[in-house]
Simulated scan of single mutants.
Amino acid sequence: MKRLWFLSFLLSAALVCSSCGSDEPENPQPTPEQPENPGGADHPDPTDPTPGENGRYLVVFASRSGNTERVAQTIRATLGCDMLEVEPSEPYEEDYNATLERAQTELDGIAEGNFPAIRTVVEDFSKYDIVFVGFPIWYNRIATPMQTFLHRHADKLAGKRMALFATSGGSGISQSASDARTLCPDAQFTENLLLTSASGGQADARIAQWLERLGASREETPEAPAGTLSLKMTVGGQTITATMEDNAAARDLMSSLPLEVTLTDYNRTEKIFYPDPALDTEGVTRGCAPVPGDITIYAPWGNVAIFYKEWPQSGSLIKIGHIDGNGIDVLGAYSGDVHVRIENNE
């Protein structure tokens, strides 16, 4: 019955999905016969992603039947970004039942700390604003090659903004998202995207809407006009920029750079630190209703406050800048304190 169901699924998926709407069967595919413990010495050489014209994003994916790969290709075509396939050391069998058996064996091995061998290793993720991670869902879990990849690269992905996308015959993504957070506990996870056989015909539109919500686009961040004050912050291996106001307080902050500070979470709304000495606010216009990304000074206390949520109008706030693009999401993803380096963006 499983074989008949699978053949029926493939036929219906091929008819419904034109480019990337079909999804991998929720019942998995094979497992390396001898799972490898990533702590061992058998590590492949680093793999170079296929480059795109927009180097801000990386799409990394695992796919056996090609469904997840079609989604990855759509994301790459939309963003013009780099892409890399995670490949098992031992290719999966064509026989579906053998695939199911191997997948279950691999999942059992992972539960005991033994991850199947893969051929894909990335040296550095630092240049990427977002890493898109795609996989089929096998028995409600992340496909095993991708689990190995995330496990091996957890340290390099710490602080990195990650967006999960998955294909499935009908299973949800919640358990897989939990797997990813366990495998990469220090990464910053965004909204997930799940494409099932039922949503195949709407796949392209859903991918485009998802990327828009994430703030991901083909265009590079425009350079600030000449003479504009601009700073950059390094947060957990990621770099975000901010355009500063042309006022005395902003110029005073810029003159004190570079700074190494710890931003403390305040009121679950803003990240704050106290410059030493206090910034010059004499004669600077006060009063603003901060929106996410605004960099301000709270005049009574003298602290710098970077808002990641909206706040009502306050006559005690002085706006001195705004974080560019969706960079505030990087800071807002940290629920507690976070260490940052602030420098001139030259």
Score class of each variant (00 low, 15 high):
S126R: 13
K127V: 02
D129L: 11
D129I: 11
I130M: 02
V131W: 13
V131N: 11
F132D: 08
G134N: 15
F135W: 05
P136G: 04
I137P: 07
I137W: 07
W138M: 06
W138P: 02
Y139P: 00
P145Q: 08
M146V: 08
Q147Y: 03
T148H: 08
H151L: 06
H151E: 09
R152G: 04
D155I: 05
K156Q: 15
A158Q: 11
A158P: 05
G159L: 12
A163G: 07
A163L: 04
A163F: 14
L164H: 03
L164T: 10
F165Q: 05
T167N: 04
S168P: 08
G169N: 05
S171I: 12
S171Y: 09
S171W: 07
A177Y: 01
S178R: 13
S178C: 01
D179G: 15
A180P: 06
A180T: 04
A180C: 10
A180F: 02
R181P: 04
T182Y: 13
L183T: 07
A187W: 05
A187M: 11
A187G: 15
Q188T: 04
L194G: 05
L194P: 03
L194S: 07
L195M: 14
L195R: 01
G201N: 03
R206G: 04
R206D: 12
I207W: 06
Q209P: 00
Q209D: 15
W210E: 06
L211Y: 02
R213V: 01
L214T: 03
S217K: 15
P222W: 02
E223N: 12
A224C: 12
A224G: 05
P225A: 01
A226H: 10
S230Y: 00
L231N: 03
K232G: 07
T234Q: 07
T234I: 02
V235C: 02
V235G: 03
G237C: 10
G237V: 09
Q238P: 06
